[in-house]
Design a protein around this nucleic acid. Structure first.
Lengths: 220, 220, 220, 220
DNA sequence: GATGAATGAGAATTCATTCAT
DNA sequence: TATGAATGAATTCTCATTCAT
């Protein structure tokens, strides 16, 4: 997020002391954006939902766009760097000596995080899918931050002999595809209020072993 | 799609002879909706892009909403039932005696189909993600059509001893999660102009075998 | 007016066939802008005054700014080139053998023109004074068109021995200062409905006895 | 300026002790009004430019309109009466025995004054041109104060045989037209940072040779 | 069937002004 | 005295939709 405006909005959103009304504006905005999407939510609705005049919204956030960013940026800016740090920590930690343990820990941790921030997660995904500008800002940022570290982790585990003998790139691609599908389907398509332990275990088994019957080794 | 309006629009969209202008309207609408999203595309833009007056659009489609459905419905109404049929056919076909072959055939076939209809695919996904009403209409429809047949297919292959010994439900969930992630990431997030054979093979290997090193059988 | 947008608006304003409502919009805009100034006139007022919905105004003119230009540009684009042509014609004409005759003819002609377009004249002057952007567009344009030709004319008359022996630049500056003051004071400050012959003659005498070569005593 | 509100604002603006913040408010207001015009300057801008809260502005000045008057009135109320006094003094003074000397002295003095108060001059002219209400207040006031005294002065000089044999009214009209054009063009249209001696002399020569009695050939 | 002028409801945004602290 | 949060009316502008031709 090299963009200066982004930085300005972010620091303001995080550091600035918020009045009660501002709190309510952000809360209402989060709820409405998550539910109906940014484009289908009017500032009048937000104002009404938060018991505030429209003027107040613009006094504090300038434009509807900046309001969206004020909601999104703290989330994404926490999501990714945090992930990066945790990835490394988990790899090294004693509790995650195997890749499977690492994966379990990662999924559980992110499920918890997204569960807590379900609505913002929905907004982010919806707008990345819908607003080209946002996609163009956020996607490169995400791609620049996560994959490199993830790849290192994967290489580490592969060297330990735990992973299939494929380039880390390829492993990463499929893993991210599955995890992306997992989070989006659970937290956006089906508004699943809690992802069960069992479901997580099933996912882990799928990632680790695939669908092939282990007894049936006749590779084609 | 129990909805009568849907049916009416659908039959009209499919059966009715289209004038040249109507063709252009639909083409332009598809392109613009795919690019900018339904909410961010005005009828004025569509009119301009298709070299037609705004009046004409409404003469033919009544409302902007119906225009969207005229674009989407033929696609989804073809996509899902067709898939169902093919699924069965493929399972039974001689060329797809193994699950892996079945999977390969399925993915290739759908990649081809979505590649050809990339823009409508993008519209459908975007609006399912964005418009709750559409999600509520299409998702149940899709869930009612695909999973049951898919489950049958999976059970068939499991009985043949090719698949891991888990309930078809669980297998299905993870498989769909991955395939959903695959198509959305390739055709929507990254506007990939052609998905390579290699990429497909990698995906198949991932689904079939997972990430675990086959040499390392130390199950935890 | 090198600006492309200006050209586009100008040609559209001149060539495009106007509906009755458009006529009324322009008429009302002219009257209100002249009376209250552009900044102090709302599009709602214009809509009301012209018996049209606000939407219609924007359908035709896009923005309030473009409406202003649609009103102003035909006037200025006619005013200056026309002036240039006339200036030369008058100098050469037999009826204007002396500078005084030339001056009289010029003033009368422009008085007539501005009298007919009094309101637009007021708008132009007001906005040049008030809107920096417009001043920056229009002033250089005016300065590039009028002075050079004017200077030639002055030099011609000076060579004929009719004018004081000063650089044409200096003569021009003072002449324009006076004429500018004349038109602005009569048509803007005091909303004078008709400038009398007598007043014009007084002005001419004022100017002449300043510019006339004292050696040249041949009073007409 | 018969208006009581005007008087109240004026006396307050002149007599009341100003806090530092008030000083800054007025300074910023002057600068912004001069640059962008009253209508195009928001109180928020003024607040920001002067490092003061918006509340403070309204605490002190009540309305934006009154702030404008607080800026303008001290200027005009000083400008005109002062001019009147000076006019008489100059006529009688020994240094200004001729009309030309009087004119030179007058122009130089006013050029100096306006140079020092360039911004307020710009505000006054802009708003007189733009705001009908202000024009209706100030113009009659100016017309009631200046012309009568000016006329007396002109009559005095005419009786001395220095001026052309025309009614003082007519002389005045053309003189004011030229001087008005002079000040407005130099200090508003072209933001001339200093009007040169030479330019002033040229203007005087222009005026003199129009007004000077041709029988009176005693050039200074 | 096609046009395009016209609409009016609503969208985002601005702004002078008020008021509790 | 000074603040700045809050307001609501007004402003520019958008847009799906209607309708006479």
């Amino acid at each position: 997020m090299s963009n200066k405006i982004f930085d300005a909005i972010l620091t303001q959103a995080i550091t600035k002391v918020k009045t009660e009304k501002q709190q309510k504006i952000v809360e209402s905005a989060i709820q409405l954006f998550a539910e109906k999407g940014y484009s289908n939510t009017s500032t009048a609705e937000i104002a009404k939902a938060s018991g505030v005049s429209e003027g107040t919204i613009f006094k504090h956030y300038g434009t509807k766009d900046k309001l969206l960013l004020s909601v999104i940026l703290p989330f994404v800016s926490e999501l990714f760097p945090y992930m990066a740090q945790e990835l490394i920590k988990k790899t090294m930690s004693e509790n995650t000596t195997t890749f499977e343990q690492f994966l379990r820990s990662l999924i559980k941790d992110r499920v918890e995080f997204v569960t807590e921030n379900r609505e913002i997660f929905q907004i982010v995904v919806k707008e990345i899918v819908y607003k080209d500008e946002l996609k163009k800002e956020l996607l490169p940022y995400a791609l620049a931050n996560i994959p490199p570290i993830f790849k290192k982790v994967l290489e580490e585990f592969r060297e330990r002999g735990e992973l299939v003998d494929l380039p880390a790139d390829k492993i990463l691609k499929n893993l991210v595809t599955f995890l992306g599908g997992f989070f989006v389907s659970r937290f956006l398509l089906i508004d699943d209020f809690n992802v069960s332990e069992e479901e997580i275990e099933d996912a882990i088994q799928f990632v680790m072993n695939g669908l092939r019957n282990p007894q049936n080794n006749a590779l084609e």
